[in-house]
């Protein structure tokens, strides 16, 4: 047998109209429509993103199972995807995500100081959430903003050319 790929359709026998909310279903459906009909599973990444956003920034096993059911995929394939890509979180998160780039261009421009500063001032190590639940602190690989290093992705917005002080200001403004 040589290399072959085929969609992994399985029937979960669940009533899809009971999964998620109508808005979320509509959003996922808009993604499904981009792909060939038999390749519904192509929408798994956007579906996980949408569902994660609606769940306070992380995915529970139940939600992954629901995505599997909605897209007629085997649950384990959804787990594979959710655990492979860095932007899915499988544990509860703070209200915000502060992602500091630690790759080479940012390192050369002082990302280490940013990281040390956050660790020191807020008492969180990368991967941890502040005690008040305000934000989860992450080190991430290259954000593709190298010319304005060091860069931080705060929730969905890039902030560039940061210093410990300017990062502080951003964090202070968080709910």
């Amino acid at each position: 047998m040589s290399f072959r790929n085929a969609p992994l359709a399985v029937d979960h026998e669940r009533d899809k109209s009971t999964l998620f909310t109508a808005e979320i279903r509509a959003e996922i459906d808009a993604h499904i429509a981009k792909y060939p009909p038999e390749w519904k599973q192509s929408a798994v990444m956007p579906a996980l993103t949408i569902v994660q956003d609606a769940n306070g920034g992380w995915l529970t096993t139940e939600l992954m199972d629901d995505v599997a059911a909605y897209l007629d995929m085997p649950a384990v394939s959804v787990y594979e995807v959710a655990s492979f890509y860095g932007m899915y979180d499988l544990e509860p998160q703070g209200r915000h995500k502060v992602c500091v780039c630690n790759s080479i261009s940012c390192l050369l421009q002082g990302s280490e100081e940013l990281i040390e500063h956050v660790e020191h001032k807020y008492g969180v190590r990368p991967g941890e959430t502040t005690e008040d639940g305000r934000f989860t602190f992450k080190e991430v690989e290259c954000l593709g903003a190298c010319r304005h290093a060091p860069a931080v992705l705060l929730d969905k917005t890039y902030h560039e050319n940061l210093s410990p002080e300017s990062l502080d200001k951003l964090i202070d403004e968080l709910e």
Binding site: V10, A75, V76, E80, Y85
Partner: peptide, 10 residues
């Protein structure tokens, strides 16, 4: 024919 096992993580 049963995707019961997977390779999770990266």
């Amino acid at each position: 024919g049963a995707r019961e096992l997977g390779a999770t993580g990266r």
